[in-house]
Each structure stands twice: as structure tokens, then as C-alpha cells.
Amino acid sequence: MPIATATAAKRRILIVDDDAQLCEFLTEVLQHAGYDTVAAASGDEALQVVAAGEPDLALLDITMPGMTGLELAARLKAETSVPFMFLSAVEDAESARQAAAHGAVGYLVKPVDAARLMPAFEAGLARADDIRQLRRTEANLNAALAAGRETSLAIGLLMGKFQTDRNTAFEVLRDHARSSRRKINEVAEQLLAAEETLNGLHAGFASRISKGKS
């Protein structure tokens, strides 16, 4: 049982570089450290790998024939949630600036040795985890705020229609949700949608009556 759990917890790393020897070296070092790896020799191949299942982190060579690492990073950022760090043969301020501008969580300069690779890699992976958690928290918060806003609107609607106070309107809405075994925000959404439909029908009737009088 512990072995299965450990295997399930392994992080999957995508290595993208047209240098087969470097890919082999990075694969060996990362697998020795307990990570699962998959290698791609081009940007197109990398996108195919990601489409089959997003890795936890991608290591991207900046300079590759065809699709460059920067172009691949732009695709990953726009189309996926895969965090990435760059591998570059050049160590200069402009390369680092471009990496940061593309949203990289780390930057490694070739030639890469194991002593420098693992600290930089693990720091990048930790930053990727922090970003992923922030996005998850933001998504949950936005969902909660949206649900709360819809519920508040539904309560206001009930108060106006039935000339009742806020607490009574909330309790009726909550009791109805419980009796139908649904979430209160789902009932609120349905109520608001029904009101919108009724308003649309009312406008249609009013228009027909107005035309009939004229």
C-alpha cells in the first residue's frame, strides 16, 4: 500500500529540448530524484504530450528549430495550466527578462550539472505549486462570491414579490433548496432565470397590447 501511494504522488516533468544527450541527462537526474519524466524533441511534440495529460512542470529549451521555447511557453500559458521554466545556453539580462515576461517559474543556464539543477528545479516547482494554489483559491473565491451574489439577488426578489423581510425570504429559499435536495445557489439561479423569462414575456405581451390599441 505505501508503495502504491508513493508512486501515485510522483510529480511528472516534461523535458523539451532537441539535444538528445541533454534530455537523457536531465531525465536521469530527475528520475533519480524521484520524479517521472517525459521528453519531447520539439514544441509540436511537447504540445502533443501535454494534450494527452498535463505535467506538473515543463523544462523548455529556449532555442529550438521550428517552434522556439518562448513560442511554446506562450502556447502553454494561453492554452494550458502547465507551469514552465527555461533552459538557455545564454546567460544575459535580456534572456532573463524574456523568461520573466513569459511567466517562467525558473531559469537555468547550460551547461547544466546536477548540483545546480536540483536546487533551481525544486525552487521552480515550489513556485509553480504556489501559483497553482493561488489560482485554485481565486477560482474558489470567485465561485463563492458569484453564488453569494445570486443568492442575495434571489432573496431580494422574494422580498419584493411577497412583501416579506430578508430573514423570512432566506429561510423559505433555504427550506425549498433542502426539500429538493439542491444547493441554495442552484435554486437562486433557477429563480433568477425564471424571473428574467417572465420579464421577457411581460415585455412581449405589453408590445402586443400596445400594437392592438394603435
Rank of each mutant, 00 (worst) to 15 (best):
M1A: 12
P2N: 09
P2V: 07
P2A: 11
I3G: 01
T5C: 01
A6K: 15
A6N: 10
A6F: 07
A8Q: 06
A9F: 02
K10W: 01
R12F: 02
I13S: 04
V16T: 02
D18H: 06
D18A: 05
D19P: 05
Q21I: 08
L22K: 03
E24M: 08
F25T: 06
L26Y: 01
L26T: 01
Q31D: 04
Q31Y: 00
Q31A: 05
H32T: 12
A33E: 15
G34I: 05
D36R: 12
V38T: 12
A41I: 11
A41P: 07
S42G: 08
G43H: 09
D44R: 08
L47C: 03
L47Y: 03
V50M: 09
A51K: 13
A52Y: 04
G53P: 06
E54G: 04
L59Q: 07
L59W: 05
M64S: 07
M64E: 00
P65S: 08
T68N: 10
E71F: 07
A73Y: 03
L76C: 09
A78I: 05
T80W: 01
L87K: 09
D92H: 08
A93N: 06
A96Y: 01
R97V: 11
A100Y: 00
A101D: 14
H102R: 14
H102F: 06
A104P: 04
P111Q: 05
D113Y: 00
D113I: 02
A114D: 15
M118F: 05
E122K: 15
A126E: 00
I131C: 00
R132T: 10
R132W: 04
R132S: 11
L134Q: 13
L134V: 07
L134R: 15
A139Y: 01
L141P: 03
L141D: 08
A143S: 11
A144P: 00
A146T: 13
A147K: 15
G148H: 07
R149H: 14
E150L: 14
T151L: 08
L153G: 00
G156D: 15
G160L: 13
Q163W: 02
D165N: 15
D165P: 14
N167Q: 13
T168Y: 05
F170S: 08
V172C: 10
L173D: 08
L173V: 10
L173F: 11
R174M: 09
D175E: 13
S179W: 03
S179V: 04
S180E: 11
K183E: 01
K183I: 00
N185C: 09
E186T: 15
A188G: 08
E189N: 11
A193S: 11
A193L: 10
A193G: 03
E195H: 13
E195R: 12
L201G: 00
A203H: 12
G204F: 07
F205I: 13
F205P: 01
R208V: 08
I209Q: 13
I209D: 12
K211Q: 13
S214I: 05
S214P: 02
S214G: 14
